[in-house]
Each structure stands twice: as C-alpha cells, then as structure tokens.
Design a protein around this nucleic acid. Structure first.
Length: 746
DNA sequence: TCGAGTTCAATTTTT
DNA sequence: TTGAACTCGA
C-alpha cells in the first residue's frame, strides 16, 4: 500500500515523541502497521522492544492480524505467544501481562501491592456482589438508599483518580461519601483476602509497581518503542503509566482524534493531550486529514454535525472519493415499521448480507430489529449482547475453575458451593463466613476441619465434607489434566449437565449443553502446555475478553452492534437507528454540555463508519422503557444541512405490501405518509397492550401536579403541545405524551 | 429451610 | 420483558 507523504513521515519518525492527529479513516491503522514493519525490517529493531496499546480487544486483534501479515509471520493467538512479535494488546491485557511478570520475579514485600501470583480478576458482577454483601451485612445499610451500583461508581472514580481507600477519608463531605469511604475500605480488604483485583485495579496496581525504580527501569529497557492508539480515550492512570514507561527514551507515538473521544464515562480525559504536549514539548505533530473510505456526502454530513461542538479542534475531513451516493432518512411511524423497512432494504439490495451494519445506542435496542430479521430469514449476528461469559452455565463452570486455581476466591466459592444443590444452605455458609472473618481462614481450611465447628449439626457437616472431598479431588486433577479436560471432569463429577438442564425444554437444554461444549472447545486452545499453566492462562484471558469469537459456520450475515463497539470497523452500508431525543442523545446527557458533546462525537463515529450508503432512521412512536413513548426527532438530524437529507420513500415501501405488514393486518393509508396524523396512529397502529388514555390536553399546564399510576406524583416541568417532561418525586424526570399517558391532575 | 409464587425495579456506552 | 428480591405455606 502506498502511503501519502504525511503518513510516510509518521512512519519514519521513530526515535522521537510523535503526535499523530488522525481523523476518521485516515488510514491511521495502516500507518501504524507500516511503522512497525519499518522498525523491524529496516531498522532492525527487535520485535520484543515494541509495545502497542489499543483500546478494545477488537482493535488489538485487528492490529495483530495486520502486523502479522506485513511481517510474514503467523498471528499469535494472544500477547503471550509473542516471542518474535511486538506486544500488541489492550491496556488491560498488557498490564496484566506485566503484573504477572513482576509477581513472578519480585517478592511481595518489595512490591507492596498485596497480591499473589494466582490472583483472579473480578468483573463488574463479582464486584457488585462483594459490595452488596458489605453494604448489607457489614454496614447494615438500606439497599435502596445506597445502591451497590452507585457506591461502585464512586469507588471506581476514586480509584481512577488514584485515591486509595485510606486517602478517601479526606474526600468525605457528604453522607454518601461517608458510606463510600467505609465501603471502600471493606471492599479493598475483601479483594486482598480473596486475592482478587477488579478492572480498575489492573491499572492501579501496575502503576504502583512501575513506581518502583528498579522495576520501571527494566520495562523501560524492554519496551523502548511505544505506541498508543486512541490516545484521546486514555484516563489519568493510563496516562501516568505510559508516561513512566516513555520517560527514558521518549520513543512514544500516540494517535489522537478528539472527535472520536467517546469514553469519558470511563474517566477518559482529553486533557491528557495537553499534558502530552507539555511532557514532550519537542514532539513532532502530524495531521492525517484525508479520509480514504467514505463518500463525499457522508463526510460532509459528519463534518456538519461535529462542527456543532464548541470544544475540540476545528477540522475538516476531506476525501478524493467521487461517488455521491444517497443518504436516506427513514422516518418510520413506529419501531416495528422501522425494523421492517431496514429488513426490506437489506433484502432488496444486491450484494451480500455482510455488507450491512446496523448500529444503535444501547445494547437493548437490538431486539426489534432482530425479530424482524429473523422473520425475514436473514442471518445476523449481534455483537456484544448477551455475552457468552455472562451465561449462568458458563459463569458456574468458570467459578469452579477459579476456586481450583485460587481457593481464596470467596465470591466464586460461594457461587458453586451449593451448585448443583448439595444441601449446603445459607446458614452453614454464614457460620463458615464467621470463622473466616474471625480467624483469617480460607474456605478450604474451614472445610477440612469442619468437625471442629460446633455450630453446625452433623447433617450440615456431612454435606460440607462431601463437597470438600469433591473439591480436593478436582484440585488434584488440575495438576494432571488440561483445562479442557478439567471442565469435562467438573461437569461429570458434579452432574452439572443434569442440574443445569433439568426442567427445561429440549431447545433450551441443547443450547445450554452447546454452550458448555463451546467452553470446552475454547479451552482446548490451551492444550499443549503444562496443566496448571493452561488453567491459569485460560482464566486470565477469559476475564479480559468481553466477546467471544464464536465459531460461526455462516460467513454471510448482517452485523448488529452498539456504536461504541463499531469504532474499529467500517462497512459499505450502515443503518443508524433510534435517532430520537432522549434515546440518542440519551436522556442522561441532554442537560449537560460536555455529555451532549460526547453524544455528538458518538454520532460522528457512527456516521463515519459508512463507506457508501448511510441510512438514518427514527420512529414516531416506540415501545421503550416498558412503555409507549413518542420522542421528537433527534437534534442531530436537525443539525445536518437539509440539502444533504433525502427522505426514504415510505410510499414505495408500503405499496410492496410485504408479508410482514399483511400478517399484522395493517392496512396502509396515505394519511400515514402525509403529515403523520397522530390520532390516526394511535388507533390503527401497533395496538399497545396498555390502554392509552385520551386526555383532554387543555387541562394540563406548566407546573401542574399530576399523578401517574406507575410513577406516582410529579410536576410538569416542561410542556410543548402534547409532550411534557414530568419530574416525579421518586423517579427522575420522564418525558411523555400527556395525551396518551395515564396521568391525572391532582 | 425450601421453593413456588409474587412483587418490584430497571437500562447507556467497555475493560 | 427480565431478573432479583421478597413472601408465604409446607
């Protein structure tokens, strides 16, 4: 591939700090790949000395593939197989790699991070279960007043600002922070005693370790050449770590695009770029502005939207591509129609299904479209939703593996101690927990000496003994059997398959068993190494992977995903759905300028995914939040110059009278397309299960108090014809159509 | 102490 | 709609 002069410059500047400002589809990935190739091939730099950090697993995999191609080597399955290959991975996976490495080389006294080598990684769910337990049993707090989620948010925020539990005391200035402080202390205690870390800890512990100069120096020597992609999405800790590593040789190249910064909720801080310029004031800055992918119209559109943001560098993406394909706006009467129009378009278009990408703001939004595709017999794949590793059967089996690997892991132990049911009830667990707390014991230690615990009757002891025997056998097996075999053994000795499938329909049974098979299948990738090693590696990689590359025989399918996950890819035809106020931009972001600008950047990311055709859709009425809502058109659509928009011809669609509609006994009527007469919709379309009220609009005025059967009392804080925002006492403010909402004046 | 039945709340975005 | 957290009878 021929690089343009700018890209060429970025490729060749190696022993120098480098800031690459790269806008959508400026071939920055290709440039980075070429840069790696140049380092290794032309400069004879050892692959071992190169580290490249990406943001998502998807991006890392893609990057590894590309680098493997130019280096003519086989793509390593993970960062571990990488002896002749640069270290390419996400922040989290690379830091874990470093942590493990450090833990095997240095004593824990020296490290001071309270972590042993066999640590496990707690995901969001594990984290919440630890916190729930703390709040309920140790702090005796009401769950409603102090939800675990909220506390977790505060703790995560503290961690990412590098505030430890002890130091948090200084932050306390409210009741909630008081609670956070106490919970934070307990939470850290639990993690240490379980020999576990959460996602935030991965960054923090690495930072702590790298502050030890002896250790830092060794990594500075090892990774002399650093590259960080998506630098705009780094947070404080990530920035500090990169800074530490780069400070000696300053061979750091970062790729930055402020208009694609969409992770501020993960504490990404765009100001890191200011710090970058300060830290390396002689850095070479290269701008890649030419877009090689999308048509002129798509780019014009995207530019128009992003220009509405006040913050950020003013930019103009440009392209030499000539084709002016049509960009269509689908304004559907309701969500069902929206989905079926998209389905219809996909069906009619020539080419393959794989050319189609359907995007939405949140995962839950895929449902309606899935239904429609299913009915039309169009193969599709949803990325990211109902993650494989979130399924109960997978979580259970992984919990078995985790306790075998690390018997201190209480969260996993509690998950499986009575799964399948073996008559170890909550009472017994409570008693054991007390012993654990008071005598600093681990579960296996208690179980071994269960006869000494007088509080338990002989039945309970017997049950625990039986489990302990089984557990010890499994631990023994883990030394001789590979993970894949170990999983099979767990299923066999616990009769887990019978347990998980009992009382299910055949179809559900099959799917559960298939999932187990699939897990075994994934585990076989770790064959060929020492038994315990395979277990450790398997567990570690699995906790960092959010979405499994399921083996899919089909090669042609439509892809569905959230905009966030789409960031790394492009597609010929893109459908961007749910473009309504409150959904996109989401209602949480509307009142805050910074949050709204992030939503707008998200819109920009979504639009620039399209290469040739872009469809944008919305529905006048849809079922959402378990209710029928009518939201106005998204402001993002209004921000696009009108001459760029072409309305999709709904008439044409209706006249085809496709089966989907006739089966729903819907008659098409010109009224629907001429001005979308609202009352007509309510009567004819998508009969709601909830009866819609037919309120007299004149009875409501701004600041009126109203009562809603579901949300109780509230006040109308905004009113525009039939749309109103009602601030409910027990809920956040909700926007609804007061003509059809079941509310009454009080 | 179980489990069947019932209520009730909840939805961004990812590692 | 789903899942988690409850209630209550056995």
């Amino acid at each position: 591939m021929q690089l343009n002069p700018k890209q060429e410059e970025a490729k060749n500047k190696i022993e120098w700090p480098l800031l690459i400002i790269a806008w959508a589809w400026s071939w920055k990935t290709a440039t980075l790949t070429a840069r790696v190739e140049y380092m290794i091939r032309d400069k004879w730099i050892s692959a071992q000395n190169i580290m490249m950090v990406t943001f998502t697993n998807k991006a890392a995999t893609e990057m590894r593939e590309r680098v493997a191609r130019v280096l003519w080597v086989e793509k390593p399955r993970s960062i571990y197989a990488a002896w002749n290959f640069p270290l390419i991975g996400t922040f989290h996976s690379i830091w874990i790699y470093i942590l493990k490495d450090v833990l095997s080389k240095y004593s824990s006294e020296e490290l001071q991070i309270w972590l042993k080598k066999d640590f496990v990684i707690y995901d969001e769910q594990d984290k919440l279960s630890v916190l729930k337990n703390i709040l309920k049993n140790r702090l005796n707090l009401d769950e409603k007043e102090f939800p675990a989620r909220q506390i977790a948010f505060y703790i995560s925020n503290a961690k990412n600002s590098l505030i430890t539990a002890k130091w948090y005391e200084k932050e306390v200035d409210s009741t909630i922070k008081e609670v956070v402080y106490k919970a934070y202390l307990e939470y850290e205690k639990d993690l240490i005693s379980n020999n576990a870390i959460d996602f935030d800890d991965i960054l923090i512990k690495t930072y702590a370790v790298l502050r030890i100069s002896r250790i830092l120096e060794s990594y500075q020597e090892k990774y002399k050449y650093l590259m960080v992609d998506e630098y705009q999405d780094t947070n404080l800790v990530q920035y500090e770590i990169v800074k530490l590593l780069a400070t000696k040789y300053k061979n750091l190249a970062v790729v930055w695009d402020d208009s694609q910064s969409i992770y501020s909720w993960r504490w990404a801080d765009m100001r890191n770029i200011i710090n970058f310029k300060k830290d390396y004031n002689d850095a070479l800055i290269i701008k890649l502005e030419q877009n090689y992918r999308s048509t002129k119209k798509i780019i014009a559109w995207a530019n128009a939207v992003i220009a509405k943001n006040n913050s950020g560098i003013k930019k103009e993406l440009w392209t030499e591509n000539d084709e002016w394909t049509h960009i269509q706006y689908i304004e559907a009467p309701d969500d069902k129609t929206e989905a079926s129009i998209i389905t219809q378009i996909i069906k009619e278009k020539e080419g393959n299904y794989i050319d189609n990408l359907i995007l939405y703001r949140t995962n839950a939004q895929s449902r309606k479209i899935e239904e429609s595709l299913l009915m039309a017999n169009i193969p599709y794949r949803v990325i990211g939703w109902m993650k494989f590793y979130d399924r109960a059967e997978i979580k259970d089996l992984l919990a078995y593996l985790r306790v075998i690997h690390n018997p201190n892991d209480t969260v996993s132990m509690k998950r499986i101690i009575n799964t399948p049911t073996r008559k170890i009830w909550a009472k017994s667990i409570e008693v054991m927990d007390n012993y654990k707390e008071n005598f600093y014991l681990t579960y296996p230690q208690i179980m071994e000496n269960i006869d000494e615990i007088e509080e338990l009757n002989s039945w309970a002891r017997w049950a625990i003994k039986a489990f302990n025997e089984l557990f010890e056998d499994l631990v023994k097996s883990s030394h001789t059997k590979l993970v894949s075999e170990l999983i099979i053994e767990i299923v066999r000795v616990t009769k887990y398959d019978e347990y998980i499938t009992s009382g299910l329909w055949q179809e559900e049974k099959d799917s559960k068993l298939e999932n187990i098979d699939e897990l075994v299948n994934v585990a076989t990738q770790y064959n060929g190494m020492e038994a315990r090693e395979s277990l450790a590696l398997f567990l570690e990689e699995i906790s960092l992977i959010t979405d499994m590359e399921t083996k899919d025989e089909r090669s042609d399918y439509v892809t569905l995903m959230t905009i966030h996950t789409s960031k790394w890819l492009e597609q010929k035809r893109v459908f961007l759905t749910w473009l309504e106020e409150w959904l996109f931009p989401s209602f949480r972001s509307i009142s805050e300028v910074a949050a709204l600008e992030e939503e707008r950047r998200l819109m920009y990311v979504a639009m620039t995914r399209a290469r040739e055709e872009l469809y944008i859709s919305r529905a006048s009425e849809r079922f959402n939040f378990w209710d029928y809502v009518r939201n106005p058109e998204s402001r993002f659509i209004k921000e696009i110059p009108k001459d760029h928009i072409e309305n999709y011809d709904l008439w044409n669609f209706a006249n085809k009278g496709n089966s989907y509609f006739s089966s729903n006994k819907l008659s098409w009527n010109s009224e629907w397309f001429s001005g979308f007469n609202n009352s007509f919709w309510n009567e004819t379309f998508s009969k709601p299960k909830i009866k819609l009220a037919n309120n007299d609009l004149s009875q409501f005025a701004l600041w009126d108090r109203v009562n809603h059967p579901k949300f109780w009392n509230g006040i109308i804080t905004w009113l525009s014809w039939e749309l109103a925002t009602i601030a409910f006492t027990w809920k956040w403010a909700i926007k609804m159509n007061i003509k059809i909402a079941p509310i009454r004046k009080v």
